[in-house]
Nucleic acid binder design. Structure first.
Lengths: 205, 205, 205, 205
DNA sequence: AATGAATGAGTATTCATTCAT
DNA sequence: CATGAATGAATACTCATTCAT
């Protein structure tokens, strides 16, 4: 008879827990986060949490996955809409996107992966398959398009797409460790992209 | 026949323990390494370990320091002996040195710092003061020398020495996570240095 | 057939644990009592114990408090109901009460306080405030009433209420140490009270 | 050939260690005192300490014994020289002696015995035999002499010599616990002795 | 579905005691 | 005699996980 007005749907629960867990992991790291904390943050009992996630590790993996998926979609979407030259794309959408990463949840994901990755090979594999590998392939294709277009020379960079994402990883690590010693992330990224473009175009920058 | 249960080797103990601890930390990370394990690896009782290192944390710090110090000395030594042009130095000693890092204990140190750094601010500070800060300053000086010599133009890179160490950090992180997905570290470093030199010299590469 | 492994009895637990702890402390003293033992005696897991008492020290304090509080109430209650002369009160309710102490848990509390007190100043303070100080003040008031009534002379004893509780403390300590060498506690107390009354009344006893 | 000038005789060592141990025990109690500390205080290696005392417990016992013995002798000596009336002796030498106790090492011994006694029955027995029992017997004899002399009536006190030492034990315990709440030990002792004498003499005090 | 009381395995640290030197 | 490096048993406390309600 009595209908609780704010009865939460069970469909929303996993995400709520996942979000709480992300916040906790981001703050204290995986190992130092207690399941109790996550439950409390999510406004949920410990028992319920275990109803949705069989172990702390499962929860961890779910967090990573749920953070990674949206980013992947965003990335893919932008690339599909690319009716511009390779250089334009790199200087425009690509750089915009990349610049947001060091301050985004992705930074946390990277940190968590570095710290806990060795213990979760399947998670790393997932990340590789869905993010890194796809990302590198996409960049490779983009550069290839530039070569075909006549925009770029074919250089070492065609086989080293890592050079374009390097500044992001570096920035994340650097900021993670030496927060206080500020690093101008945007400038680092810009300089690297500039250099790479000059190199590929065979021009002086 | 049988070895004596007690072996007095005051001098060697700390290093033996430190080495055992490094091996253990490298394998399983700091948190997952039990003090018991370290002691057993070092062929030493737990009590003795605590005679030399007051806490697990102290031991951790000692490990980091003992691994970092020799590298610092090596770096410094090479730089002092530099009677060559800036480019020669970058292409020669610098690149040789830098290429050894991803496969060296330094990689482990970086991993440990990333994973445990947030909990050990003084350790991070130590690392910053003795390694990163000094390293960046050294590179900056080198580039400046190149500018003064007329070898290089003055560019963004003069204010972003990070661009030269970026590939090392990236390589370490990449290999740490995706060991199986091989990355040609040497080539990455070479390409980056090539590009930077071309950029600074204002030439095509 | 078999009892369930889990028994939810939130309300009773603290007291059950406290009682088990008292028994253990009484038997072996605080330092020599292992938390494990207390848990086992209480039929409870160690973890649960720590759910209710944050540290062994907290548990210790709770034990002392739970033993002291009822006594305090008993004492206060009797004094409030005193519509008799001071002498009658001292010879009646007071002596009855005091005679029960050496064989009661209070003896254990005193022993624990003596042994562990120096390490738990706040506990000693608590005991002072709630028991000793109040007890002495009560006796002082009683004696004063006797003086005002004309029952007693004003003597040194008015400023030394300790003389009335001395035999209790002495008995406890004596029995604690030399259990085998019997001491007639009751007689000791009676003699002392007799003497004090004679002294205060200015009569021969 | 070379003769160390300050070579300590082995006869002095045990006492030096015993004294250091007493200081340590008095400060921190038996359980909280580390053998290391005692050795350091005594300016001696841990190994040497174990050459003289087989265990920490042995050391403890030796400390108690070495502190008790001189007191016993002092007590005995004074009693032997008693060519005065019982009352004169009680008011003079006895009270002088007794007043020194609460501030003397005896207080520490009592504290240690209370805290550790239950674990060291033989030590308690030793203390009973050599101190308490002899002390009570001596007082009993003294009071008896008073009765024979015609100084005193025969009262309950003749069978309760404890009444005379009670204030000392009480003072020690009280000061041990409530150091801050000062108690005028001397006055307590005097009042008690006064009362007892009046009682025994059948006079008003 | 939901709770949170209850479990118990896991671990850093201390310290009395031993023994190679 | 003398040292102090080395041992190892002992113990408080944590936290992921379970399950009676």
């Amino acid at each position: 008879m009595s209908e609780p007005r704010f009865q939460r749907r069970k469909e929303e629960r996993p995400q709520e827990i996942t979000e709480a867990a992300f916040a906790a992991f981001a703050e204290k790291g995986y190992a130092a986060t207690r399941v109790d904390d996550v439950a409390r943050r999510a406004g949920v009992s410990k028992g319920l949490l275990y109803l949705y996630f069989r172990t702390k590790e499962e929860l961890f993996k779910a967090v990573i996955r749920s953070l990674v998926m949206p980013r992947i979609d965003a990335l893919t979407a932008r690339i599909d809409s690319a009716d511009m030259s390779a250089e334009e794309f790199l200087r425009g959408p690509f750089m915009d996107f990349v610049k947001t990463l060091p301050g985004s949840p992705v930074a946390v994901v990277i940190r968590l992966l570095i710290a806990e990755g060795p213990k979760h090979p399947d998670l790393v594999q997932f990340y590789w398959d869905n993010v890194v590998s796809r990302g590198l392939a996409t960049i490779t294709r983009l550069l290839e398009r530039g070569v075909v277009n006549g925009e770029f020379r074919r250089t070492q960079v065609n086989e080293m797409p890592h050079l374009l994402i390097m500044p992001v990883v570096f920035s994340v690590v650097f900021k993670l460790l030496f927060e206080e010693q500020s690093l101008d992330t945007d400038k680092l990224i810009e300089t690297q992209v500039d250099m790479l473009l000059a190199h590929m175009k065979g021009e002086l920058s």
